[in-house]
Design a protein around this nucleic acid. Structure first.
Lengths: 227, 227
DNA sequence: TGTAATGTACGAACCGGTGAGTTAGTTTCC
DNA sequence: GGAAACTAACTCACCGGTTCGTACATTACA
């Protein structure tokens, strides 16, 4: 049996020794490097030796802390999703009118995707594997997202004020926004190769950022004139 | 040196012997199985032995026909993209009014993504590898797409008739439509695991199909009332 | 002193790729 | 028409590097 490290939880407790804090730092460093390696090469393509080579630690320590390549990968996923949740909880749009609220939410989602390329790649990789690893993690299965409540509130306010005419579901709206932001980052390489347009370039990025906001606003206003 | 097969081109010529047609069939079968294997497991995760095991041919023959794992993968990509182009050329919406034309195009794109899961996965995989294989293929680099002309025409007609108020770029519009359709299929597993909603289930699929049409129409009509 | 952390070296399966020879369809030549 | 020559298509056995994972000894710390 492989022994497990002392700190089972990710939260550093108050009564920790210097030794434990060192170990926690090593753990975090492994996760950092592993995230890059997995994002760059996929699960099967990632090399444990390569992760070890890019750090001070040895491969032995990776197995000491995480037990297996798969558990390391799951730990990377959990950390990445935790960061996303944290970011989502930081969004503050309650003070805005519904139209501006949803537009701002869309643009912040856009920025968030733009700033977290590795996370996007991990999600894409995980989907290729049919989310089998996410399902193995109790920390991630059926997690939901804080933004959903936010969207729900904006939608309700918009319908009440008459700004929105389209009866929409919060998850659908979340998907509509996410899909655009996700696609631009995730598919930038094939898109660039096929259409000769680099969607990550500043001028395109800014235009597409405005576009996602206008798109969601136009959709929710909807029903302007009948078909 | 490894010898190359007789048929350098993919197009079966008229003066082919039965032997060559047999070989062509074997080639096609390899591509079919390889597409599944690559789509299921990614490039690094795919096993040449596994592809061989699922057919009558041996691994040696795969190397005889395609030379290397990478060239086989590229051949799979080329075939998949060729099918997409063929489908896109089949779209007929010129007889429709702009609004209905763009809505129909969006819904057909939706259907197409829904019906070609393997292709979606290949694109996702290729993007993880930063499209390095697509760039290695002369057949695929800077290819463009027939739909772009179609969208361009619809956009022009819509602006001329006054149905559309939003000045939009054809590539942007294509991306707006594609991103939604792509995301629903590509990310269905993580989305399902996180939100407990199976976007591939019939009831959701039908609603989302309508949604993509309404979204693009709403966006192009746009500018209903100022901010 | 006991336990957590770490270094070293290695095992064993896996996996992409190949050398070399064989079978059988096609063409050539009389 | 048919034997001989040619070669594309195919089989079999095998290699060598890679890669995840671990056994075991050792060190540093509480």
């Amino acid at each position: 049996m492989t022994s497990q490290p002392a700190t089972a939880s990710n939260v550093p407790e108050s009564g920790t020794t210097e030794r434990q804090r060192d170990a926690e730092r090593t753990r975090a460093e492994i996760l950092e490097v592993a995230q890059q390696e997995f994002a760059r090469n996929g699960y099967a393509g990632a090399r444990v030796d390569e992760i070890a080579a890019r750090m001070r630690t040895t491969k032995r320590m990776i197995y000491y802390y995480f037990g297996s390549k798969e558990r390391l990968y799951i730990a990377v996923l959990e950390k990445a999703y935790a960061e996303v949740r944290g970011m989502e909880r930081g969004i503050e749009v309650e003070h805005l009118a519904p139209i501006e609220a949803i537009r701002t939410l869309a643009e912040l989602t856009f920025d968030h995707h733009d700033a977290h390329r590795d996370f996007i790649k991990l999600v894409a990789i995980e989907n290729i594997h049919q989310a089998e690893h996410i399902r193995k993690s109790e920390a991630l299965a059926n997690l939901g997202t804080p933004v959903l409540d936010l969207i729900e509130a904006i939608l309700d306010a918009g319908m009440a004020s008459g700004d929105f005419a389209t009866e929409a579901d919060a998850i659908d709206v979340h998907m509509l926004i996410s899909s655009f932001c996700f696609f631009r980052v995730a598919n930038q390489h094939t898109f660039g190769a096929l259409f000769g347009r680099d969607m990550a370039a500043p001028e395109h990025r800014d235009r597409l950022r405005r576009m996602v906001g206008e798109m969601i606003v136009a959709y929710l206003r909807g029903q302007a004139t009948g078909t």
